[in-house]
Amino acid sequence: MLEIRNLHVTVGEAGIEILKGINLKVGRGEVHAIMGPNGSGKSTLARTLAGHPDSNVTQGEILYEGKNLIGMEPDQRAREGVFMAFQYPVEIPGISTAYFLRAALNAVRTQRGLEELDAVEFLGLLKEKMKIVEMDPGLLNRPVNEGFSGGEKKRNEILQMAVLEPKLAILDETDSGLDIDALKVVAAGVNRLKSPDRSIVLVTHYQRLLNYITPDFVHILLEGRIVKSGKKELALELEAKGYDWLKGEVHV
């Protein structure tokens, strides 16, 4: 599904190198967790996969279903089935959440050779999808993320994932800023969206999200490199020992 080879990325005009040779393979239907402390490059990796314009790939390849994502516009990636749930979802004043979601879905459907949905058909679909994240229907008529609480914003991200049905979903610190109840709801939503055809990459600082979403693989990112990979037990080990335990491995 996804293969990252020797990925180097600089960020911003200063061109500081954040990712220094990432190698990662994600198979179809697998759940991978990328863990790392602040500043390790986790979010840069997520944003690079989604095609953020500030991320400059200086070296390496990102192969998604055999296609190179580098150079592909972010909207094209999304239409090809790549989805990123944002750490800090953005507000769009004046555009209702329902309208936004329908525009997004129809863009994706067109790419997949499907008919666009009209407002009535879309609302029917949306009703079903909203159950996945237990979202308040009142939010649909409000402008995208405007005045949403932290938990509502994150639910809205997972709702969008449910509606767009991506093949590759990257969740960037979806657990941050959530209390335990909201975390459970969001995690349950993600679990319901797991499927043999959908790969999920969880980017997280803390192990706690992984109590609710069990990853197949865990990778630890430090200073722009994946320093250790393992099964879900690695996350527990990390929780017990802290990131300092791996600091020695950085320059290997």
Binding site: A50, G51, H52, P53, E73, P74, D75, R77, A78, R79, F83, M84, F86, P89, V90, I92, P93, G94, I95, F100, A103, A104, A107, V108, Q111, P143, Q160, L164
Partner: peptide, 23 residues
Amino acid sequence: FYCRSRGITGENAVSMIVNGFCK
């Protein structure tokens, strides 16, 4: 970027944001 990461083209994203501004 938020709009585009949902599959909406850059131009459509601009007009969407502008229309929201004018609503």
